[in-house]
Design a protein around this nucleic acid. Structure first.
Lengths: 353, 353
DNA sequence: CTGAAAGCGCTTACAG
DNA sequence: CTGAAAGCGCTTACAG
């Protein structure tokens, strides 16, 4: 049950060399003769040697991870941020530290300079890794991203993927599945009916996935599905919602994708009181919880931004620490209704727990 | 950003005492004056002191945790076991070892002697803690449990609670919420209809909770709710299901509680093909996945036994390691339908991942 | 290219 | 009741 593990001292002793040399052989750092290195590695394999992570952490110098967060929706950003902070405080004991830079509440293309500056700074400080959450287009930051790539600093992407050689992992919600779930939920009560979808911009990756998933599941259920876009602008949300409610013949069901449910929900509280429509929203904030509690919305698809934040840190940590790499980390969407909404705490709101 | 963590040396220095004394105060071991102890604890809180598990691991002698698993349903037991093993392998690096004893597939009262023997053995070996999953009644093991209590060995209860002074934590699904969810799901399509519930024995704690939760949510929705019990016996499951399907006027909805859905689901595959009834089942095994995939069952309430297993180990670890105690660990139930069933892997089945 | 030594933050005998 | 010191298995300057 409790077998004695071999240590670098055992290795050093049985080869009549010093632990320093063993260390260099094991990590391939510093100058070391190929012959000694070979001997050590062979002996290590032979003796089933494994580095002890706890001992490593104790002696290692600290590692700092740089984080850039850029998102136009403050509530969503806050959740992501909380998740990231939470995980950082969990790995602080391993001497991992964070340098988190929060951009103005705009899309990445509008903050390109600030973002590039931060990335270059991270590179210059030789940080151990980088986490990027850039909503919108990262094109304008291409130069900085390339510099990071050349410096070979591992990068984890959150919500929006950035294809580079140094991209270790992409963490996001499973948007396709979320869309399918929304359609299945609406199909329970709206068979053969007309359905409306309110979405940000079908050009945005996650919205596109939501839509595609919905359509796949929808094709056997509904008479028609109409898509209304609002470009994540609160005024357009209002405008499009009005259009949906004024429509004749009336829609029986409505699916609101993405965190922009935040803007739609307060409006629904009035609109849907008179004119009953089956509604599925997205994510969980105080704004989206209220209509669930009042049974004005049948369900919301929770994509857990808090967990997305945590997982991004965890993925980078695993990579740096153990060279474990998970290309894609997908958060399974959760179905939240009136009966289980109370189990979900929204960390960003003040009345939390 | 990179804040230096306070160590026991910082504590010792700022109180002008030795680290040995700080250690004793922190752990309440050995002889120490109440006054010093108080001062240390206060300072520790003030300076946000936390023990560094890596450092602890390095110096500590190994700790063994004893586990007794007793459950009549093999599939459920396997999931719990997997979760426990998984978590144990994660904490092996901290020199935590396990001694897991799996009982025959019966209720605890039928294995009382074996269970008592295991518990007494754990006590005699002076294990660091114990995890007990005893389905059915623990009454016949009262003596062994008392011996454990007197030895002051911390105990975590899984699925079934055992009220004792040494009971650190109780880990289980949120059965009440699961029941409410089931009722809300059925209410979407079965308003003002007659509903049947198939359950184990209303005397068993988790089944009672499922039922109570269902009833609370049901009262505004349904015309009537009839309860059928099967005592977790496969033959009675068949018998009661037949009764439900033969009933006139027909039931529009059916809620099957607990892991006994395993026995019911294969039968549903035939019964519900002809006579369409809205059905909500419980938990996720290959048997309960199939009817979801075939759209014969509308949803299953997943209570994540794997996670329950993991959390039980985690709870005990936290208690032993950091004296953190969480009395109740509730796993939030998940709604699984056709559109998201593929996201859930069932670890116990061979075709996993 | 290699070695000797200090140190990470705890726990564990042992001495007083 | 309290303290001094060795040691866990690594990493990191520093010396040669």
């Amino acid at each position: 049950m409790a077998e004695k593990k071999t240590t670098i001292y055992d290795l050093a002793e049985s080869l009549h060399i010093s632990v320093g040399t063993v260390y260099r052989a094991l990590h391939g750092t510093g100058r070391i003769s190929p012959a000694t290195k070979e001997r050590v590695l062979q002996k290590a394999a032979e003796m089933n040697f494994e580095l002890n992570p706890s001992a490593q952490m104790l002696s290692r110098s600290p590692i700092t991870i740089g984080v850039v967060l850029c998102c136009p929706i403050p509530e969503f950003l806050d959740e992501i941020y909380s998740g990231i902070s939470h995980e950082f405080s969990a790995i602080a004991q391993y001497k991992y530290y964070s340098d988190i830079r929060i951009m103005p509440h705009k899309n990445a293309e509008d903050c390109a300079e600030l973002i590039s500056e931060a990335i270059i700074d991270f590179k210059n400080r030789n940080y151990g890794g980088v986490i990027l959450f850039l909503s919108g287009s990262h094109e304008p930051c291409a130069d900085a991203l390339s510099a990071l790539e050349e410096a070979n600093i591992p990068m984890v992407c959150l919500v929006n993927d950035i294809p580079r050689k140094n991209r270790v992992s992409f963490v996001s919600a499973d948007g396709f599945c979320a869309g399918r779930i929304a359609a299945e939920l609406l199909s329970l009560t709206c068979t053969k009916q007309r359905i409306a979808i309110l979405t940000g911009a079908s050009a945005i990756h996650i919205h596109k996935l939501n839509l595609a998933g919905f359509m796949e599941e929808a094709k056997n259920h509904f008479e028609a599905v109409d898509v209304f876009e609002h470009q994540d602008r609160p005024d357009l949300v209002r405008h499009q919602l009005a259009a949906i409610y004024d429509h004749a013949p009336a829609y029986q069901g409505l699916y609101i994708t993405s965190a922009s449910s935040i803007y739609a929900c307060p409006l629904l509280m009035n609109l849907n009181r008179e004119q009953k429509m089956q509604i599925v929203t997205t994510d969980l904030f105080s704004q989206t919880k209220q209509p669930l509690e009042d049974r004005i919305v049948m369900a919301t698809i929770f994509q857990n931004p808090f967990l997305q934040g945590r997982k991004s840190v965890r993925a980078l940590f695993r990579f740096i620490q153990n060279h474990e790499q998970q290309n894609l980390v997908m958060i399974p969407p959760q179905i939240v209704m009136h009966s289980n909404v109370e189990l979900y705490h929204v960390s960003a709101q003040p009345e939390k727990d």
